[in-house]
Every structure is written in C-alpha cells, then in structure tokens.
Amino acid sequence: MLAFVIKRCIQSVVVLFVMSLIVFSMINLVGDPVDMLVNPESLPEEIDRVRRDFGLDQSVQVQYWKFLTGAVSGDLGNSFIFGRPALALIAERFPATLELATCALILAVSVGLPLGIYAGLNPDGWGARIVMGGSVLGISIPTFWLGLMMIIIFSVLLGWLPVSGRGETENFLGIESSIFTVDGLRHLVLPAINLALFKISMVIRLTRAGVEEVMALDFIKFARARGLSSPRIIRSHLLPNIFIPIVTVLAIEFGTLIAFATVTESVFAWPGVGKLVIDAIVNLDRPIVVAYLLFVVTLFLVLNLIVDIIYAAIDPRVRLQGDR
C-alpha cells in the first residue's frame, strides 16, 4: 500500500510539473497583461515601470523559472488586479466553493441513490418510468439556464429566496459556514439545488444501471434458490456490489462539482473560487488563472489517489500495484 502511494505521488508531481509547463507557456501566447494593468493613455515610462514591477520584461524562461521556484515554496505570484498573493485569494474563496459542492454532493447521493435503486428494482413500473424520464430531463437541462429560471421564479416572481450572494456565515467548531445561519441557508438553497440537479440525475442513472446489472447475475439467483428473502438479498448481495463502483465515481464527481461550481457561482454571484477564476480569465489576471489551475490539478490528483485507495479498501478483489 505504501509503495503504491509513493509511486502515485511521484507520478502526480510529474503531471503537475508538465501541467505547469503547458499552462505557463500557453498563457504567454495570449494577450499582453500590461494592457489590462495600465491606463491606455499612460506614458511609455509608466508602462515600462509596471512591466518591470511585475517582472514581465524578462524572458519567458526566466519568468517560468522564477515561477517554478516560487511555486515550490508556495508562492504563485501576486494577482495583477488585487495586488495580493494568488494562492491566498484562492484559499480565501475556497471554503465557499467547498460548502456549495459538499451540499450538492449530499443532495445528489441522498436523492439519487434511493431513486436509482427503486427504478432498478422495478424497471417496468410507472414510478421507474417517471424517475428515469426525469433523469433524462435532468441531465439535459443546462445548469446555468436552470439557475436563471430559478432566480426568476423563486426570487423575482415569488420573492421567497434571495437572488444572489452567500449571506451570513457563522463559525461553528472551527468551520466558517453559511449552513449555521438561517440567512446563510436561504442563500444556499438555490445554488445547491442548481448544482446538484445534474448529479442527482447522473447518480440515478448510474445506480439503476448497476442494480439491473447485478440483479441479473447468477449469485442473486443462487441466493434466491437457497431461500433468502428479497430484503435480505437486496441488503447483503445487491447493495455491496453496486456501492463499490458508485463510491468511486462519487469521489471523482466531487471534483467535477467543484469545476461545475464556476457556472453556478457566476449565476448566483456566489463568492467562491469559480467566480474568482472566471473574472480572472476575462481580465487576463494571469497569476490567478495559473494558481487556480495548479490548485485544481493537485485537487484532482489527490482525489484520484483517494479513489484508488477507497477502491482497494472496499473491494476485496483489488490489490494495488506495488502492494505486496
């Protein structure tokens, strides 16, 4: 197990390095950030000064080397717009995104899983048809448009819930979150549902496919033939077999939720990293974009590692490579 983790960590560092190289070289091909930083009417001396201040007068290689040495010590440069360390800005905004993604994931699992199991066990019933029909619509509906419609209906027309923002937060057991205040919850409801809807549909479909596949296997038939009752077969033979793939998928999906949060955050003006990076892309705020990318790449590499470890832990058939 340890050998496997070490091997994967080395691999991850290589991937990170390659990513930083690709991102850094490509980002230098587009636009001159100085144009964004200074007033177009400034004097050439002023432009040069800014260029020097941000180290943009040096060659790309030198810039990359400086960036790399900085990155190793946790310094990914200062935002052009905010004038503050990019990593600190991301760290500041990340809890809001994490909160949103976590709520969406919990929603997706708690709604999607039971519905999926239900639909899988009664494939020909009307209930299952409605669930499956709903899930097709759920994966088809564009998240951002749904967000807009939710705002129009629940905030503008009905006036039940606030339009945008995060609302009050409160510190509880060291976690600063809006789920501990009524106002915060009111702000959270729409974005969380909005973000979760696609995943709910996905979980339903995955679960149903898993249930149908497992129920057709011989060991279920054998369990019935030795007189086990249906609830017992579902509990001890069906569920363990469908949970394994679903748990691993969910860990990965958590990552995609964080990525997809950029859309929801933009619609609901949720102050998370997603909104930060969209603004940075529009404003050519290079350090933020690079920092965000490396942050996300790291996050995904860690998530993938966790998935493999979970997989080995819950599936007795899997032995990790490098594991003796």
């Binding site: 033939a225 030795r226 007189g227 001890s236 363990p240 599936d315 007795p316 058939r317």
Partner: peptide
C-alpha cells in the same frame, strides 16, 4: 421450501458466489 427443503447448485461456481462478501458471511446468513 427453497433452501430448507430443496437446494440448488448451478453450473458456474465463479458466478454463483457474491464476490465482495466472505464465504463465511454468505454461509452464516443462509
């Protein structure tokens, strides 16, 4: 009747057993 009066054995032992539970667990529940 099933299990208590009439037992069944299938062709492929590979697929007749639940792969993610110990054989002890499967025996005990039966």
């Amino acid at each position: 009747i099933r299990g208590q009066k009439i037992g069944m054995i299938f062709q492929d032992p590979q697929t007749s057993l639940n792969p993610v539970r110990t054989i002890g667990a499967q025996l005990l529940e039966t």
